[in-house]
Design a protein around this nucleic acid. Structure first.
Lengths: 225, 225
DNA sequence: CAGAAGTGGAGATTCGATCTCCACTTGCTC
DNA sequence: GAGCAAGTGGAGATCGAATCTCCACTTCTG
């Protein structure tokens, strides 16, 4: 969300003023484009949004992967920090819910981030290292909520990323139709995770209308080969 | 599953015996390949599996789309029939569950079918006509289960295809790791759909181990552009 | 104002798919 | 079993979409 304080280039020799300005524009445009379209946006598209030529991008970043790595490092570390904060909720269940909701939200708002966070995407060392930090934190969230009897006993920490993945693909194809409707399905899933039944919790969003559903399905794309 | 009685070519003039045999091989190979890989398998791959050259495929089918349309017509009609059968369960809830389970199963076993059933995939007239028949049937399944108080009152018929879509993308990336684990997540989701809480229903499959989860995530691919 | 730094964007390159084409092979009919 | 229409394989024409290169030109800075 915030324009992160991305590394201001190696200060071996400072960039010319116009060059530095372009560098920032590229980073900004890339963040935007990755968020909207996903990691598959072309560099041509990014260059266009930044108002520069492709050549300018290649002058600053050796290749597309390096650009991605530079861009998402902060974001993925922030994600881990968010999970840790959720451990501090005094109520274990609401801590878990809060993690779940914020995680799904990040995925819904930023396709690029979702792809970096969920997939292997080879060659993003810094990002994949951060990903490894997640499982332990998630385990503690799960343990805590099972210990106090709010989370059903038969779910495991490894279930969470997979549930995230499911919700992520839903939000991916509903985003243009109703960008918040994923909350409805998150509600259904989390009701399915509670240990003791009670009445279902009210769903935070109304269902899609039939035409909206049609449109969402039309927006669905099979996974890339 | 069954080798459907696909239209035996226009009987204007019967094919030579070897040609008809090849035609069947192509259909069979295509069914297999679409199921395993999805609609994006190349015709080269299909030709290879069928033990014929690409040219032979093009002699029988004007293009890839026609081949797909021919292949999935029966299957999608069968799907609608299956949904109608589920209306006959005397218990509304188990009818709904049964539909849900069998639908997810078809998607898990056949990537091609999933893509035809869920996405718009333009230009498959016969298939898309069949898809339109679904909503009314699903509505009756939902109504019935709400009328007898087993299904939570705030879900709508349009929720079902979207829940299917979620489960479908899960099964897509877990299929090589544990082809049945989608049942676990189906269990969580359907627990979230029940009207009155009770104890959670036992999950039909154990969770994935951490390495398996890693592998499943590695198998995840972002939607095609 | 000189020269170093930076730039744009056409196009070289690679890749992976669909579909064409024709010299050759096979099956059917008489 | 001969002759010919039907059928075949698969190399390669063709398309499209992406990454990345290159260099004549522009812009900054000391």
């Amino acid at each position: 969300m915030s324009t992160a304080p991305t590394t201001p280039a190696t200060p071996e020799r400072p960039l010319r003023r116009d060059a530095e300005r372009n560098r920032q524009r590229i980073l900004e445009a890339a963040r935007e484009a990755f968020a909207e379209v996903g990691l598959s946006v072309t560099l041509d598209e990014i260059a266009h949004r930044a108002g520069v030529g492709v050549g300018t991008i290649y002058r600053r970043f050796p290749d597309k992967e390096k650009l991605i790595d530079a861009l998402f490092e902060d974001q993925i570390n922030g994600f881990v920090a968010m999970a840790e904060e959720c451990l501090d909720h005094e109520d274990a269940w609401s801590g878990l819910l809060s993690f779940f909701e914020r995680a799904t939200e990040s995925h819904a708002c930023d396709r690029g981030f979702k792809e970096v966070a969920l997939s292997g995407y080879h060659g993003l060392d810094r990002c994949s290292r951060a990903r490894e930090l997640m499982l332990p934190v998630v385990s503690r969230l799960v343990d805590r909520a099972q210990a106090d009897g709010s989370l059903r006993a038969d779910v495991a920490p490894t279930d969470l990323p997979l549930l995230q993945l499911m919700l992520g693909s839903l939000s991916d194809c509903t985003r243009d139709v109703d960008p918040e409707v994923w909350r409805r399905y998150l509600g259904i899933v989390t009701d399915g995770l509670r240990a003791q039944g009670g009445p279902p919790s009210p769903l935070p969003r109304p269902p899609l209308r039939p035409e909206q559903t049609q449109e969402a399905m039309r927006a669905w794309r099979p996974p890339a080969r």
